Simulated assay, not measured.
Amino acid sequence: METRLTADDGIELKEITVEDYRPKNTVLRVIAIVLSYIFHPLFIPVYIIWLLLNTQAYMFAQFTPAEKAIALVRFFIIYSFFPLVTVLLAKGLGFLKSVYLKTQKERIIPYIASNLYYFWMCYVLRHQPDFPKEAVYLSMAIFIASCAGLMANIYMKVSMHTMGMGIMLGFTGMMAMGEATNYTIYFSISLLIAGLVSSARMIVSDHTPREIYTGLLIGVLSMAAAVWADGILP
């Protein structure tokens, strides 16, 4: 049990007791923390493009091994390095109290900055015919999810971790339905990982179940929207 301050109808502060449903087991919490770091949303796009490069070699038949490595590095720079540096700079300049972005207000600057990076990556990939359409779908889905996350941030602190999980689920599900290569196993693994990460965020974060599920929904719908949008954009 824990206590919080809240305002009643008379705008008077009063202390209420809230049941803390998060488990206190130390081992569970350590595992949840490790999972949260390994499957941090900054790394999910890199994991996905790495999977695509290694399981769908025919899509990158025109790429040399060096060009494949460069593609992986590009994804890391745009989706991991730049957003991380943005958060660290904002923290160093005093715009953020914590690099963990614990409040909705602290998430505004990282969201806006990341949207610029993600839009640029999406634009570049769409105009590079050597990249397969699946990589374009991924970049568009990440941009759409980030925009949706920024809008949802007005009302709730949507879990960025589960947004990443939703994109991963949407991507592997798309590949499982459309590719000759059996992607069902990867979709099954994605479901398992998404469940573990969602549970981990329930354990070690202050997210509510609604924020966890909303993040998953945004991620999955963003992938579907990316596939749809790519078909109507010039």
Rank of each mutant, 00 (worst) to 15 (best):
L5K: 09
T6H: 04
I16D: 09
I16A: 09
P23V: 11
N25E: 15
R29E: 15
R29V: 09
V30Q: 08
I31A: 07
I31Q: 05
A32L: 09
A32N: 09
V34S: 04
L35Y: 00
S36Q: 02
Y37Q: 03
H40T: 01
H40L: 01
L42P: 08
L42T: 12
F43C: 01
V46D: 08
I48N: 00
W50G: 07
W50D: 09
N54I: 03
Q56I: 05
A66F: 13
K68Q: 13
I70W: 11
A71S: 10
L72N: 13
I78A: 14
Y79D: 05
P83E: 02
P83I: 02
L84V: 05
V85R: 03
V87R: 00
V87Y: 00
G94L: 04
F95A: 08
Y100N: 12
K105A: 14
K105R: 15
E106V: 01
P110M: 07
P110C: 06
P110Y: 02
N115D: 15
V124R: 12
Q128P: 01
P129V: 11
D130M: 06
F131L: 10
K133Q: 12
V136D: 03
S139F: 04
S139L: 03
S139C: 13
M140K: 01
M140Q: 06
I142F: 10
F143A: 10
I144A: 01
I144G: 01
I144E: 01
A145P: 05
L150G: 04
L150R: 03
M151S: 12
N153E: 09
M156C: 11
K157D: 08
V158F: 06
M163A: 05
G166R: 03
F171H: 00
A176Q: 09
Y183P: 07
T184H: 07
I185P: 05
I189Q: 03
D206L: 12
T208C: 07
I212V: 15
I212A: 05
I218W: 05
G219S: 09
S222I: 10
M223E: 08
A226V: 07
